[in-house]
């Protein structure tokens, strides 16, 4: 069907046009996507990146970046990275375990439907809503706080204020990382063919051997990829932190909020762009690592 020799003229008009377009036509089909991405993704990115290197008058400068690598902001970056790494690792391991448990459930069954819908809500719906969920659970007068106090006379650390600082963010972030892991990782677990397990069994291999030599290696690129995705997810998250933390700005997204909403420092709005560039650099580092890993391991998936 594919016309290797472009036919000129003739009656098969449709076929001719396609043949004449050739490779250019192949790229033309990508135009709508490219336009959308350029306007709403690439242009704003350029604005942030350029702005980070400009002063208020639009002149090139490094003072924004110099200010951002100062101690207060550097501390915020360290805290953001810690928060993302811990919650990504815990979320990935627990989420993979849950994916494995769900993968055995009937694909059309009620359990699977309930779990997937629940994961969708908790992973992507998160933000503000989950902040209030945890205020109701382990906040100063939350259900769990009250129960612990009444039954065991256990007082929450720092009078319940721990929820509104880094420890609280760790707990809530983990809560939405696990379901995201399930959503991202479950398709890979389902990609494991039962025949592979049967093949190992028929050759006398144990279940451990199957996971060690077949299941594990096949899933590991997907697992690593998903873990990096979880890191990016936590590092980028804003809603939960914005709703929980009202005093101070311990992590980078809250520092940016301060720049965007505070009137005192409106003269320095490009500092916010420099912080944004810093976030992009950190996450891009992880995604670059992910791309390298993918290239090395993708061949086992084919």
């Amino acid at each position: 069907m594919a016309a290797s020799n472009p036919v000129k003229g003739g009656r098969g008009g449709r076929r001719d046009r396609r043949a004449r377009l050739g490779p250019a036509g192949h790229y033309l089909a990508l135009a709508p996507f490219l336009v959308f991405v350029s306007v709403f993704l690439l242009y704003p990115t350029v604005v942030v990146v350029m702005g980070a290197f400009q002063d208020n008058g639009g002149h090139p400068t490094l003072s924004n970046l110099r200010a951002v690598t100062g101690s207060v902001y550097a501390d915020a970056f360290v805290r953001s990275i810690e928060l993302s790494a811990v919650t990504a690792l815990v979320g990935a391991v627990l989420g993979a375990l849950l994916s494995w448990a769900i993968a055995a459930a009937k694909p059309e069954g009620l359990v699977r439907r309930l779990v997937l819908a629940g994961c969708g809500v908790l992973a992507q719906f998160g933000g503000v809503t989950l902040a209030f969920a945890f205020i109701a659970t382990v906040g100063v007068t939350g259900l769990a706080t009250n129960l612990l106090r009444e039954l065991f006379a256990i007082e929450p650390p720092r009078g319940g204020a721990w929820l509104f600082d880094m420890p609280g963010l760790m707990v809530v972030y983990t809560y939405f990382q696990i379901p995201l892991m399930v959503l991202v990782f479950l398709p890979a677990v389902e990609g494991l063919r039962p025949q592979w397990h049967e093949a190992v069994q028929s050759l006398g291999g144990s279940t451990w051997r199957y996971w060690r030599h077949v299941g594990g290696p096949v899933l590991s690129p997907a697992f690593l990829g998903a873990t990096l995705l979880l890191f990016a997810n936590a590092f980028s998250a804003y809603g939960t932190a914005a709703a929980l933390v009202s005093q101070g700005s311990p992590i980078v997204p809250l520092q940016i909020r301060a720049f965007m909403t505070s009137e005192v420092i409106t003269g320095q709005q490009n500092l916010g762009k420099a912080l944004g560039l810093g976030m992009i650099v950190v996450v891009a580092l992880f995604m670059g690592l992910y791309a390298l890993l993918q290239r090395r391991t993708a061949r086992w998936l084919r």
């Binding site: 990115t45 992009i280 996450v283 995604m287």
Partner: peptide, 10 residues
């Protein structure tokens, strides 16, 4: 994913 929503806003 490398451009968090909070940076997209900016």
């Amino acid at each position: 994913l490398t451009i968090p929503a909070i940076v997209v806003v900016v």
